[in-house]
Design a protein around this nucleic acid. Sequence first.
RNA 1: GUGGACGUAGCUCAGCUGGUAGAGCCCCGGAUUGUGAUUCCGGCCGUCGCGGGUUCGAGUCCCGUCGUCCACCCCA
Length: 428
Amino acid sequence: MNPTIQPLRGMNDVLPADMPWWHFLESTAHGLLDAYGYQEIRLPLLEQTTLFKRAIGEYTDIVEKEMFSFDDRDGDSLTLRPEATASLVRAAISNGLLHNQRHRLWTAGPMFRGERPQKGRYRQFHQIDVEAFGFVGPDIDAELISLSARLWQRLGLSKVRLELNSLGTPESRLVYRERLVEYFTRHHALLDEDSRRRLQGNPLRILDSKNPELAEMIAAAPALEASLGDACRAHFDGLQQALTDAGIAYTVNPRLVRGLDYYSRTVFEWVTDALGSQNAVCSGGRYDGLIPLLGGEPTPAIGWALGEERIVLLMQELGISPPGVQPDVFVVIVGERASRAGLAMAEKLRDAHPGLKVHAGLGGGGFKAQFKRADKSGATVAVIIGDDEADRGVAQVKHLRMETAQTTCAFAEVPLQVAALLGATDGR
RNA sequence: GUGGACGUAGCUCAGCUGGUAGAGCCCCGGAUUGUGAUUCCGGCCGUCGCGGGUUCGAGUCCCGUCGUCCACCCCA
C-alpha cells in the first residue's frame, strides 16, 4: 500500500454524518433570506491581494499574517478570500450595482485564513454573509439583526446573546483613538505585552483584552460613547429603539470593537459561552466608508457574517436534531432472480411517486441482514422481494413502524399499497 | 505566532518501570435452511501518524516532522 496523505492543517472534510446540520442551517437561512427579500450573489474565491489590503486594512492581523496569498504565472499577487465583504463590495462596484441603488444581497461559501486551528476555528471555514447597500438609517441595521435573530429562532438555537456598540464615524474614532492612546500611554507600566503591541497598531483592541489584571485600568479608560457625534448618537438610539420594538434583547458592550478597519457606527456580535474561546458565531456592522475606499460611489453599507462551522457545532452541542432524511421505502432484495425485479420495483416506485425516498437493498445478504439494514435506514415501509416473489410477480409490503400484517401484492399494486401505508403513518 | 496536551483497529479507548498489540462498539456469518429487539457463538479489521536515533529488542525512551485539541493571539 502507498503511504496515506494527511489533510492540510485546518482544512476539514465535512462528513455525511454532519450534513443534516449543514443542510438545516443552509436551507433555513436560504428560506429566510428569500422571505426578507435578499438576493443571492456568487463570488470568486480568488481576488487580487490589493483588494483585501485596502478593504480590511494593511496592518490588521488578517492581512499581515493570515492570508493565503501567492503569485500567479504573471507575477500578480492573488489571495484566497479571508472574508466575503470585500469581495462582495468589489463585485457590486465591478457590476455597477451601486449607482443610486439599493441592494440586499447574500452569499455563502468557504473563506481562508492561515490561523492556528482550534475547535470552531479552521483555515478553510464557511460563512453565510449578508450585506445591504444604499440604506442610511438604523432601520436596516435593525432588519439585519432581526433576520439573524429569527434565524436562531428557526434553528432552535438558544445560548446566544447579542452585543452591540457604536464606533462612530472614522473621524470621531480618530479623535477617540488619540485620547485612548494618551490614556494607555499614561498607564503604560500596567499594560501587558500584547496590549503594548496593540497600542502601536490597534489601540481600540486593548479594550477587548481578556487579561483580568487589566480590567480595572481598562474600565476607567475614556468611553467611546462620549466621543460620539450627534448624528451617530441618534443612529445608535434609533437602532436600540427598533430592537426594543422588535423584542430583541441586547446588551451594549462599550468594549466591543471589530478587528477589521472598515467598520463605522453600528457593530454587533452574537456570542455564546458554549463553544470555548471561539465565542463569536455571527458578527457584523456598518461600513459606510468602505465603498469609496475601493473606488465606488460613496454608499452606506452594512452586513454580517455567520460562521457555519460554529453554528453547526453549537446546534450539536445543544442537542438540536435537524430534520431527518430517512427513506420512505426500503426495498428488501434477496436472491439472484430477485435482484432484477427489486431494482425494477425501486424504479417503479420512483416513477409512481416522484417525491418518494426509496432505498434499494443492494449488496446482497440474507433476509435477516436486509431487514437489519431496512430498520437502520429508518424507512417506514419495506417492500420485500425474494426469488419466490420474483417468480410469482408479487412483492410483500410491510409497515416497519407499526404492528400490521404484511400483505402480498402484485407488482402493479405495490405503489398503491405503499402509498396507503405511508398515508396511515403521516397522512401523506 | 506563543505555551501546553495528544496521535494505537472504521469509532471510543486500554497497553504499568522497553520484550514484536488488546477490549467495547460497528460490520459480516450463524443459533429449526425467508423477516428488524435482546442474548449467545464465530469471524473480519492494525506496517501503534510519518521519518530518524538509542537498544540484542520500542507502541512504550530521544530527536525531527505532519496532524488534532486547549489556552493566548486573532476572529466567523
